[in-house]
Amino acid sequence: MSVPRPQGYSDGLAIQWPRPNAPSRLDEETAMHIPDGFVDARTAVATGLIAGAGVGVALREVRRSLPPSRMPLLGVSAAFLFAAQMLNFPVAAGTSGHLVGGVLAVALLGPAAAVIVMTTVVVVQCLLFGDGGVTALGANVLNMAVVAPLVGYLPYRMLGRLLPGERGRAISIGVAAWLSIVVASILCAGELAFSGTASWSAVFPAMAGTHMLIGVGEAVITALVLSSIAHARPELLAGPDRATSPAPSGTAGFAAVIAVALAVFVAPFASPWPDGLEHVADRLGFGTAAAGPFLQSPLTDYALPGVTSPAFATIAAGLVGAVIVFLLSFVLGRALVPKTRGRTR
């Protein structure tokens, strides 16, 4: 996610792909693209399923509502976002980050099309450049192509309604972009910890901390890019809102996907205690249930240091939480996002 900046160009455009081939200091690197070997089978399957569900909802939505005239725009936008991810910006002390572009995509294309386009970019990076692993594809698609655009979408629309005008749009888009990066990075940390690759106490502050900083860069660039587009062709930003505003079912589907992802990968670590897994499980009363014979046999096969049966119990707890989060965001979404048909103004 963070690369040394090429010298001599103040526009930060690093044409070298995937990354500038310059010598780099290791401590400068943090990554949002998870490589192979960093997620275990369980996490690979779980992220794959959740990401698949998200992309599936997006696919159905795009097939239903994308006018054929916007079809070529998907491909050309994928090229644009691919190129946009080569844009580097300085973060701090010689470190630089590059754009992820999730919120940029969502603001320009609408949520469903943004998921499709971002997924394409992530998959091509994985298959053609080895940037992001094959077994981590589910995780990477989930973090960068599903959650990053969609987490930003609601704040963008909600704040955009609360804060009118150009400044309001810049603020709402900035907040959305920052949130999307931070949430995606926390999810990424959760997946790594869940896989037993790194301990939560190390990976969470490292990922969340750096991305709170990198997120500022993403926010500034996303806001500036959108305002420059809005100046030249305002109808491009209004377009996706009207044309591909998702049906309530689409919004609900996306909200469900995000809630489940957060519940499964982040909730188990949300407790401040080091043995947060067990603690949460105990408190919610799943600890004993999970030890039952029914769950025992599959668990022993997958047992990993630090992750024992209560983890599954916690996931169950998390899923309950997810349902609540989902219902809440669904209700909020319906209340705050105007219905397409109701627009007669």
């Binding site: 900046r5 001599g8 103040s10 526009d11 930060g12 455009l13 054929p68 005239s69 916007r70 079809m71 070529p72 725009l73 491909g75 050309v76 936008s77 090229a79 644009f80 190129a83 946009a84 844009l87 910006f89 300085p90 754009l99 320009l108 500034v220 660039i221 500036l224 890019v225 959108l226 305002s227 420059s228 587009i229 030249a232 062709r233 491009l236």
Partner: peptide
Amino acid sequence: APNRRFDWRLLASVAGQLFLRSTARAERIY
């Protein structure tokens, strides 16, 4: 003179320009 200071606005305007061209291109492709 090479500009050493990082220019956020420049970066954003390059990206914005690229997107505008991309949209126009997509319309012509259609």
